[in-house]
């Protein structure tokens, strides 16, 4: 399996950000009531993940080699500014898209998935293309997890669920089963 494909598949299913690494749980629990919303949230996340991967690569290659101790602070600053810029650009270029995605963008800033991507990308020493592949895979994995959860919640909406189980407890128990299912993807990576 090619290195780039490997990174993509690893990030998307084998080491799925949400179900295996617990990154991006806030949208997973908070914004997974409807499939359509989940898809948009996933798309917005993927977009920001890819932009982050590019910025982090620039930072790692040209800036942080001189000051590795400022890594965390610079990542946070870059992610926060990035989300603001993306928000402004989308608002200017496509007001329709902004109406669709706009409310989710601020939610992404302190989403662990974005910072997690930046940290993993750095610690694994990915180059530019590997970073992109990682970001797209992670975004696809987040979207997949969100949509799966939303479709289960949509189907179980009218079920008579006992009060204490409703809400977060139910989401976590469903996520546990999904995570169990995703463990079946392990072993997909070793080609021999």
């Amino acid at each position: 399996m090619g290195e780039l494909t490997w990174i993509f598949v690893s990030a998307m299913v084998v080491n799925n950000f949400t179900l295996m690494l617990f990154l991006g749980l806030c949208p997973f629990i908070g914004v997974s009531n409807r499939i359509a919303t989940a898809l948009r949230m996933g798309a917005a996340n993927t977009f920001v993940l890819v932009m982050t991967a590019v910025c982090v690569w620039v930072l790692n290659t040209f800036v942080l080699v001189y000051a590795p101790y400022l890594r965390l602070i610079s990542f946070i600053v870059v992610i926060a500014s990035l989300v603001q810029i993306v928000e402004m650009v989308i608002k200017k270029v496509s007001p329709v898209l902004f109406r669709e995605l706009g409310i989710y963008l601020p939610l992404i800033t302190t989403n662990c998935a974005i910072l997690g991507l930046a940290i993993f990308q750095t610690s694994r020493g990915y180059d530019f293309l590997e970073g992109l592949s990682f970001a797209v895979g992670a975004g696809a994995g987040l979207t997949l997890a969100l949509v799966l959860m939303a479709s289960i919640r949509e189907s179980s909406e009218l079920a008579n669920i006992p009060q204490p189980v409703r809400g977060t407890a139910l989401v976590l128990l469903i996520a546990g089963s999904l995570s169990l299912a995703f463990m079946g993807f392990a072993g997909l990576l070793s080609s021999g």
């Binding site: 749980l25 629990i29 908070g30 603001q84 800033t109 009060q163 809400g167 977060t168």
Partner: peptide
């Protein structure tokens, strides 16, 4: 009332 994660409104103020 069921507890929903409270991070969403907090985070919303960040931007």
């Amino acid at each position: 009332p069921v507890n929903e994660p409270a991070c969403a409104p907090t985070v919303g103020k960040v931007a």
